[in-house]
Amino acid sequence: MIVMIIVLKNENAQLMINKLEKHFASDHQVFVHNNRVAIQGAHPADLTDEERAQASQIITDVPKAVQASRLFHPEDTIIKTPHSVIGGDHFTLMAGPCSVESAEHVMKMAKVAKDAGATVLRGGAFKPRTSPYSFQGLGKEGLVDLRKAADHFGLDVITEVMDDEHVPLVEQFTDIFQIGARNMQNFSLLKAVGKTQTPVMLKRGMSATVDDVLNATEYIAAGGNHQIMIAERGIRTFDNKYTRNTFDAGVIPVLQKLTHYPVIADPSHAAGHTEFVTPLALAGTAAGASGLIVEIHDDPAHALSDGPQALQPDQFKTMVKKVNAVRKALQAFN
C-alpha cells in the first residue's frame, strides 16, 4: 500500500492538518508529527489544490513502517528513564547477568555495572531457553531482586517480557521492556507493550531483515508507545561454528539512516564466547550504536545461563575503557 507524506509549510500548519484529517481520516490511516502528515493509501492526485499549495514537499517513496521512518519523524527519538538518556548523541551502557540467580548475586553484579559506568541493570527473570530442561528464571522473585539491586545503586532496570500476560507484572518492576529475538514477531506481545508508556528494547530476530524489524516496531508504535529502541544482537547465518551468531555491524548505520529510534548493540549474544565480546562491542561502538547491552558474571563457569559469553568484572571494566577510547576518537572528528 502506498504511503504519502506531506511536509506542510509552517504557517497555518495546524489548520491544514485539521483539514487533511477531515478529508482523509474516514477511509485512510492518518499520522501526524509536527508539520508532517502521513496518509496511508493516498496519492498526490487525491489532494485538493489548497492542500497541495500548503505542502512544501510531498513524499511518496515511504516504507510501510511509516511511524518508524525518518521521512516522517526526522529528529532522533530521545528516551528518558530515571537514570538514563538514550538516543541522539547520548551513549548508554547496560550490563548485568543473563539471569537473576539470587538476590546476593544480582546485587554484586549491579555494583560492578555501576562502578564501570553503566546506568541500566539487565537481568532475566523469565528466560526463553532452547531446552525446556534449562534454567527458566526465578519469575517474580527475580524481578523483585533485580529492582532492589537497581534501586540500591541508582540504576534503571531492563528485563525481558515473554508474553502479553506477563506485561502488567513485569511493568511493575522494570524501566524498559526487553523483547527478545525469539519474540520479535510475537504480535500479541508487541501490541501489549505498545499500550503501555514503558520504553521498549526490541531485539532483531535471528533471521529478520531490516524491514522485518522496522515493521515489528510499527506494532508497538501503533498502540501509542513511541519509546522504542532496536537492538542488533547478531543474526543466524550459514556459519555459527566459531561465534554464536553473526554480528551485523553494518545494520547499525543502515537503521540509523532509516529510523529515528536508538540502535543498541548486543555483543554478548552475537559473540557467544567471552573472548569475542569486547571486539564486537568496539565494532558496534565504532559503527555508531547509541549504547551497549552486555552480560557480566563473576563466575561464568557456574552461571545458570549463558556463562560462556559473560564478561568477568575486570574484563568488563577493560571493555568499557576501550569503548570510551573509541568514542573519544570518534568525537574528535565531529
Rank of each mutant, 00 (worst) to 15 (best):
A265N: 12
D266K: 10
P267I: 10
P267M: 02
P267S: 06
P267W: 04
S268I: 13
S268T: 15
H269R: 06
H269A: 03
H269T: 08
H269F: 05
A270M: 08
A270T: 10
G272W: 08
G272V: 14
H273K: 14
H273I: 14
T274H: 14
T274K: 14
E275K: 13
E275W: 13
F276V: 12
F276L: 15
F276Q: 11
V277D: 06
V277S: 06
V277F: 12
V277T: 11
T278K: 04
T278G: 02
T278Y: 00
P279N: 10
P279V: 10
P279C: 08
P279K: 11
L280G: 05
A281P: 09
A281R: 08
A281D: 03
L282F: 07
L282S: 09
L282P: 10
L282D: 04
A283M: 07
A283H: 02
A283P: 01
A283I: 11
T285E: 03
A286F: 06
A286H: 02
A286T: 05
A287T: 07
A287Y: 09
A287F: 10
G288Q: 00
G288E: 01
A289M: 01
A289I: 12
A289E: 02
G291S: 09
G291Y: 05
G291C: 06
I293Q: 02
I293G: 01
I293E: 09
I293S: 04
I293R: 02
I293F: 06
V294G: 00
E295C: 13
E295Q: 09
I296M: 00
I296V: 15
I296R: 02
H297D: 02
H297M: 05
H297W: 12
D299V: 15
A301V: 11
H302C: 11
A303C: 09
L304M: 13
S305C: 13
S305H: 10
D306W: 05
G307M: 03
G307K: 03
G307D: 01
P308Y: 08
P308I: 07
P308Q: 07
Q309L: 03
Q309D: 05
Q309W: 04
A310K: 02
A310Q: 03
A310I: 00
L311K: 10
L311D: 00
Q312R: 15
Q312Y: 00
P313K: 04
D314S: 13
